[in-house]
């Protein structure tokens, strides 16, 4: 485990290596470490931000000192506290926590999935085969970011991996479901983007009026369910 400064008010804790070979194991380690660090309540810690193989721990050095850190050396004290919190963690053993499963309805109407044909051509499949293959996947959230509520999902069937578009679009509608390389994700709000759009969900993935504001967080499992245009229109709030 590697702990490196991310500026003077955060450290980056690398809890797993080799994401590409073992994304599930990496995620499990990150989730376990996230829970342990949260439970440790280290003085001065403001928040934890997991992503793929790392957790960023944000802290306030002033509050850390108020909480017992030596004024002349907060970094060593903090590293010791982090290692103590994570000592003996084992992603397959006691730390295993089942994360919630979220079902997300998607409408693949050509008006919504404007890149479905291109993805199908790239995969040498028909659009319907793409939809079936996509729905069969078992996805997990590896990270939320880029914009508020945007989930980066692993578990895309490898046949569907499609490179990002050469020229990003200026505007992707909210709810658009896209494929970018080996990952898939959903645009929570209208934004620019370079992923290939295959459909749209009527669900709201990000709502600043709610706390927590996001539907998904790292570790969640996601299942997709195909819906008709009628069901989509009925579900839009």
């Amino acid at each position: 485990m590697q702990i490196t400064p991310l500026g003077d008010c955060a450290v980056l804790i690398r809890v797993a290596e080799n994401f590409d070979e073992a994304p599930e194991q990496a995620l499990q380690k990150v989730i376990a470490a996230h829970r342990r660090l949260g439970a440790a309540k280290i003085p001065g810690v403001i928040e934890l931000a997991p992503a793929y193989t790392t957790i960023a721990l944000f802290y306030d050095p002033v509050r850390a000192i108020d909480g017992g850190a030596p004024a002349e050396n907060v970094p060593d004290w903090l590293e010791h506290k982090i290692r103590e919190a994570l000592a003996g963690s084992d992603s397959r053993g006691a730390d295993y926590v089942k994360n919630s499963v979220v079902e997300i309805p998607i409408c693949y109407d050509p008006e919504f999935g404007f890149d479905l044909d291109e993805v199908a051509q790239h995969a040498e499949l028909s659009p319907n085969e793409v939809i079936d293959l996509y729905a069969a996947g078992n996805y997990r959230v590896h990270c939320v970011g880029f914009i508020g509520g945007f989930p980066f999902l692993g578990g895309l069937p490898s046949k569907l991996a499609t490179p990002r578009r050469e020229t990003p679009r200026k505007e992707i509608p909210a709810g658009s479901v896209g494929i970018g390389g080996k990952q898939t994700g959903i645009y929570p709000v209208k934004s620019p983007g370079g992923w290939n759009i295959i459909g749209r969900t009527p669900l709201r993935l990000f709502d600043p009026q709610k706390n927590p504001p996001g539907l998904l967080r790292a570790g969640d499992q996601v299942r997709f369910r195909a819906i008709s245009r009628e069901e989509f229109e009925r579900s839009v709030t």
Binding site: P50, V144, F146, G148, P213, A218
Partner: peptide, 8 residues
């Protein structure tokens, strides 16, 4: 603060 895990 505290909302980075949701991308905020």
């Amino acid at each position: 603060a505290g909302l980075r895990e949701f991308g905020v």
